[in-house]
């Protein structure tokens, strides 16, 4: 079993539907935090956390800055901020320049988490129309973490996971119905 101290899921266009299918099938005693970085419009935060929360018995919360990262909790990155991870396992938010035309940027969080969790990190990249997240996956690999992507064939927009497969030498390619099982077996 792959040791996992944090799972980060990145996604853009077409990834919300995937989460709606995956979240209900997650076991409720997940022994690590799940951090979700989604591209979206500004100011739709509470809406998104509410929607995701309706799909799982796990606690879903929007991240507060300097908050402690707890296992068994699903964290949603607020719109219009980058998310970084501190060495003391707290969250920092950052309002600096967009990366890949995106804030939050998936690359920024993957790279920051890779430094902190190194080989205890698992990152999953879902459907999307730009390549944000791909460089992050490369960093995660360099630090010994595990990388997975949604099978582009099953993605509403295949570009993002396809780019990852092309460039990041990912460990796992998962169909939508395989994702929950994969996560449930991490420990």
């Amino acid at each position: 079993m792959k040791t996992c101290k944090a799972l980060i899921i990145g996604g853009s266009a077409g990834s919300l539907d995937v989460l709606f299918k995956v979240l209900p099938a997650l076991r409720i005693d997940i022994p690590f935090p799940i951090i979700i970085v989604l591209h979206r419009k500004q100011g739709t935060d509470s809406l998104l956390s509410g929607l995701l929360s309706s799909k799982t018995a796990l606690i879903v919360k929007e991240i507060e800055e300097k908050e402690n990262i707890l296992s068994g909790t699903i964290y949603v990155v607020p719109s219009d901020y980058h998310l970084l991870i501190e060495k003391d396992l707290t969250f920092s938010l950052d309002y600096s320049e967009k990366v890949n035309y995106s804030r939050p940027s998936i690359d920024v969080t993957f790279q920051s988490a890779a430094e902190i969790y190194s080989d205890d990190l698992v990152c999953l990249l879902l459907s999307g129309s730009n390549a944000d997240g791909v460089n992050g996956l490369i960093t995660v690999k360099n630090y010994g973490g595990e990388t997975a992507v949604q099978d582009p064939v099953t993605a509403q927009v295949e570009y993002m996971p396809a780019q990852a497969i092309l460039r990041a030498n990912v460990d796992r390619v998962l169909k939508i119905e395989e994702i929950a099982d994969y996560i449930n077996l991490l420990g």
């Binding site: 970084l84 991870i85 501190e86 920092s92 950052d94 600096s96 920051s112």
Partner: peptide
Amino acid sequence: YSRASLKRR
């Protein structure tokens, strides 16, 4: 200063 941000900058 928060180290994660500072290091990134």
